[in-house]
Design a binder for these strands. Structure first.
Length: 426
DNA sequence: TCTGGGGTCCTAGGACCC
DNA sequence: TCTGGGGTCCTAGGACCC
């Protein structure tokens, strides 16, 4: 059996841990640049604040009900996430834990007797809540997809389930599938849900009765095949090793306001390259391909919002590197290629790919073999920036004006990662 | 006026090889 | 006039996830 443990309204819960005064109040957290709502507490959902909607549209409702608003504070959420996952590693052994996202984790329960599943799931939930202050839900079932089904129902019926639901018999699984609409299945998004509804397949139970050929044809080939098997209780998505390196590393941001001059874009791209290179070094890797893209302001807004096209290009380096200085130069040169004078831009991004472990970098016959020597300097810069203040050391190409930086008007302190922002009690 | 920032996997089709 | 069959690798793009 497999469990999935998922934090309830994670970002809101993180903010509340340090603000007991808002434990009962509606809370929302905004995306970067204070653009969209990306997390809502139950109280905010009840009022009718929509998910992923733009903040400015929900603002009247938010002000009317006195909803507490936060800009996103990823330093805080990242650290709280680590505490939750570490609790699970301590309890269940790190080999049984697969961290799936910042607020979700699969747990292998193959060695737990069926009769103890509920008790174990409950103790996971209670321990995480006691040690971290974050409320969680746990779903347990024979496969990952079914455990997601269980988790969703547990969360939906908090009073009955106490946020823990175990699907340990064919009958319970069938009932759960009947209560789950196709669009709520993990792996069914907007397009597939629409297609399924047209075929009069409305619930997960309906889908589980379709034949495998039909699913292969209509739900993305082997993806549909695996999904159907999982719904029927046949394991098709296995537990994955926790130590896999990312294949793509990206840093992309909206600008605080529209940008029209090339130098600001170059500064932003140099800064994003610096961030991406830090992520790269943290997983002991180097990248051989660097891509840059810019997004101009939409020409035609139309009735429905849609993101404008992004304009990008990439360079393959002669040799993979993780050194910020070696990555900034090609990144900035790509900006020269992409920028068109006279247009205004709202976003830019940097992506690193062709990632290899940095102890296995392929050398080049015609380059001096420096064995990534600059890595020592990079490690020092990383250490200083991490232990002192962000960006206390930075590359000149990142600029000093930074008029493109994003807006954060409701930022909470980084309670757990900065000494000078510790919570104080008077 | 104001709409995020990361990722993954899969498929189709083209270029190229023998 | 007539132009194979099998394979690999790469890229772009679509769909999905949180």
């Amino acid at each position: 059996m497999i469990a999935i443990l998922d934090c309830n309204s994670f970002y809101c819960s993180c903010e509340r841990v340090f603000r007991p005064d808002i434990a009962e109040k509606p809370v929302v957290v905004l995306s970067n640049n204070d653009g969209c709502i990306i997390a809502r507490s139950d109280e905010a959902k009840v009022i009718g604040v929509g998910m992923a909607g733009p903040y400015f549209k929900a603002r009247p409702l938010i002000e009317e009900y006195g909803v507490v608003v936060f800009s996103s504070n990823y330093n805080l959420y990242g650290d709280m996430s680590w505490r939750v996952m570490e609790t699970l590693r301590v309890m269940m052994g790190k080999e049984n834990i697969e961290v799936y996202s910042v607020d979700e984790c699969f747990i292998n329960l193959a060695h737990i007797p069926t009769t103890s599943l509920h008790e174990v799931a409950l103790s996971l939930k209670e321990t995480v809540e006691m040690w971290t202050g974050i409320k969680v839900s746990v779903g347990v079932a024979p496969t990952k997809v079914l455990s997601k089904v269980a988790n969703r129902l547990a969360k939906k019926n908090k009073v009955i389930t106490n946020c823990v639901l175990v699907l340990d018999s064919p009958r319970k699984i069938e009932q759960a599938l009947q209560k789950t609409l196709v669009e709520d299945i993990w792996g069914i998004g907007g397009q597939y849900a629409e297609k399924l509804r047209r075929e009069n397949i409305l619930t997960a139970f309906d889908l589980s009765k379709k034949d495998i050929q039909w699913c292969r044809k209509n739900l993305g080939g082997v993806v549909g095949d695996r999904l159907l098997r999982e719904l029927r209780g046949e394991k098709s998505r296995v537990m994955e090793s926790p130590l896999t390196e990312k294949k793509i590393i990206a840093t992309t941001r909206m600008f605080g306001s529209l940008v029209t001059d090339i130098n600001s874009i170059k500064e932003a791209v140099a800064t994003y390259t610096t961030r991406a290179a830090e992520k790269l070094r943290r997983q002991y890797c180097a990248a051989k391909t660097i891509s840059v893209f810019v997004v101009p302001k939409e020409q035609d807004f139309g009735a429905h919002f849609r993101h404008g096209p992004s304009i990008g290009s990439h360079i393959k380096l002669v040799r993979a590197t993780s050194l910020t200085n070696e990555l900034i130069k090609p990144a900035v040169s790509l900006v020269d290629k992409l920028f068109e004078a006279g247009r205004s831009y709202k976003k830019a991004g940097v992506m690193l790919s062709d990632i290899v472990l940095d102890n296995s970098i392929q050398g080049d016959l015609f380059l001096p073999n420096n064995k990534n020597e600059g890595r020592f300097l990079m490690d020092m810069i990383d250490n200083i920036n991490f232990s002192m203040r962000d960006d206390i050391l930075k590359f000149a190409a990142s600029g000093t004006n930074r008029n493109w930086k994003m807006q954060k008007n409701f930022h909470s302190p980084r309670y757990t990662t900065r000494w000078d922002e510790l919570r104080t009690i008077n």
